[in-house]
Structure formats: C-alpha cells, structure tokens
Computed example of a mutant assay.
Amino acid sequence: MTLSPYNLPTTLFRYIWAVSWQHQIALVGLTVIAFLLEIVPLELQRRVVNNLVKERPFHIVIALCAAYAGAVFVQGATKLGLNVYRGWVGENATRDLRRHVIGYSKLARAAAFGADVQGIGAAMIVAEVEPIGGFVGGSLSEPLLQAGVLASVLAYIVHLDRWMAMAALGLFLPQLIFVPVMQGAINRRANARVWLLRQLGISTVESGSAVGQEGSADAKRIDRVLHLNMGIFKLKFSMNFFMNFCSHLQVVAALLIGGWMVHTDQLEVGGVVAFISAVGRLNDPWGDLVNYFRDLSLTQVKFGLIADRINESLATPGVRNVEDRGVVA
C-alpha cells in the first residue's frame, strides 16, 4: 500500500466531499428520519396524560404506552445506526489523512528537510488528524440533525399553545446574543493553541531545544497554552451555565402560563406536560449546534495547516524528485 501523498483540497468541505460524498448523502437521509421521529414521543406523552385525567378506559393508555415504547425504540435505533455510520466515515477519513502525513514526512526527510518537518509531522499525527477525521463523519449530518430537532420541537410547541411558545422563545432569544460572542472568544483561543502546539512539536524534535534561549521559549509557550486552556474552560462552562439557566426559565414560564390556562380550562394538563418535555429537548440540540460550530472553526484551522504544509512540500522540486525516484512506497 502506497503512503505517497497527493495534493489535498484547499478547503475542509472540499476534502469531506472528495473522500465521503456517497456516505454523506446516506447520512443525510438517516438524519432526516431521526429528527422527524423526535416529536412522536411528545405527542404520545400528551395523549397518555390526557386519557388518564379524563378517566378513559385504561386499555387506551396501555396501547399508547406501547406505542410510545415502540417509537422511542425506533428513534433510538435510528440514531444508533447514524452514530455508528458516522464513526465509520470519520475513521476512514482519519486513515486517509494519516497516510498523507506519513508519506509527507518520509518524502521530506528523504529530501533532507530540517527537523521542523519531523516536529510538524508528529504534531499533525498526534493532535490534528484525529479530530479532523472525527469531524468528517458528522460534518453534514450533525448540524442537520440538531437544526431539524430544534425546528420540529419548536413547531410542536407552537402547535400546543402559541402564548407559551412566545414566552419560551422570548427567553431563548438572549442565547442568540451571548452564545456567538462567547463562542467567538473560545474559537480565537483554540486557534492560538493549535499554533503554539505546532511550535512545541518543532522545538521538541530539534536538538538542544531543552536548554538555552529555545528552552525558555518553550516554557513560555507551555505557560501560554495553560492560560489559553483555562480561558477556554471558563468561557465554555460559563456559556453552559447561562444556557441551562435560560432553559429552566423556559420551564418556569411554561408552568406559570400553562398552569393558568389549565386553571381556567383553556388547556389540558397533557399539553403542559408535553410542553415542558419539549422545552427540555431544546437545550441539547442547541448546545450541540454550538459545539458543532466551535469544532468547525477549529477543524478548518487544523485542516488548512495540514493541507498547506503537504501541498507546499509536494510543490518543492527536491521533494518531487525524491517521489519520482520512488523513495516512498
């Protein structure tokens, strides 16, 4: 099996399309099925509660509970298949990138490049290739799934009661302000961290890097990575705190407004229960979407660095001559 690299696409999504376009189409199909199934358990839950309150024959409740269990099983099995398929697609992309990096490292060494080549190659293999491959598996299906779940649940909430829906959406809007701001700050720190780790990889391979001026520079880089990581932790967990707080305020609004409407016979109890359950399901897909765009920004930076390094090396005359002689095989 050859390990000789070829030019990589210049952008992340061109690479994703090149290595997995057939599988991405199949993943999108599974994703649509998964998010369309999201509201079925909510509606069955509402009907179970309403039938209990109205004291209807219990065999109806048994049938609805059986349908609920079946719907949850089908939904869970669909997501299981989707996640396993994603993992397989991502691992194949990781394998492809590793072959590129190893081939690049061998060609560069044979062409008598400096120690920085080995350091960058090691950093790419250890810290950069794995998350890129993992991102490839869910690059299209993940945002589609989470956006589909959000849209489905929001539509169901509006269907239950527009006033409770307006209150919940009003409490959801602040997240559209503070989340992008905080996420942008996280992305900037994550990108700086990638660059610093590459510099550490280079200096680790170079002889004598543990002493003198270079050793002092490495110590500063390590400290800087620590400060960047702590900044990322503080921003990420603060953002999670505010998102969870807004989610609980939505539940409070549903209890207040829904409780009043039940009290005045404008809404059934099952509607309030289903609404609270639906509001609880908004937080996870929204959080997953936030994480996706954070990963997208970081992965684009990592892939761009890898593609630029490999493509520039392959364009170097010395490397091309080594490859023509068949040094790497």
Rank of each mutant, 00 (worst) to 15 (best):
L200K: 12
P180I: 10
G212E: 06
S207K: 13
N191Y: 04
S203R: 13
I177C: 11
I186Q: 08
A210D: 15
I186T: 06
G212S: 04
L169A: 15
F178G: 06
E206F: 01
A167S: 14
V179N: 02
I202L: 05
S207M: 12
R188N: 11
L171M: 12
S207A: 15
G212K: 02
S203F: 09
G170W: 04
A167H: 09
L169K: 01
A190M: 15
L196M: 11
S203T: 13
I177A: 15
L196C: 03
S209P: 02
M166K: 02
A210Y: 14
A190Q: 12
V181R: 13
N191H: 08
L173W: 01
A167Q: 07
Q183D: 05
G201Q: 08
L176C: 10
N191C: 08
L176M: 14
S207C: 07
Q213M: 09
G184H: 07
G170R: 09
V205D: 09
V211R: 09
M182N: 05
L176N: 02
L200G: 04
A168M: 07
L200S: 07
G170T: 12
G201I: 05
V205R: 12
L169P: 03
A168L: 03
T204W: 11
L200V: 10
S207L: 14
R188D: 11
V194W: 03
P174V: 11
N187E: 10
G201T: 09
M166A: 15
E206H: 04
L173Q: 03
L176V: 08
F178S: 01
V179S: 05
A185E: 08
V205K: 12
R188T: 03
Q175D: 03
G212T: 00
A168K: 08
R189C: 04
A167V: 12
G170A: 14
L176E: 01
L171E: 09
R188G: 08
E206S: 14
E206L: 11
A168W: 04
F172S: 11
A167W: 00
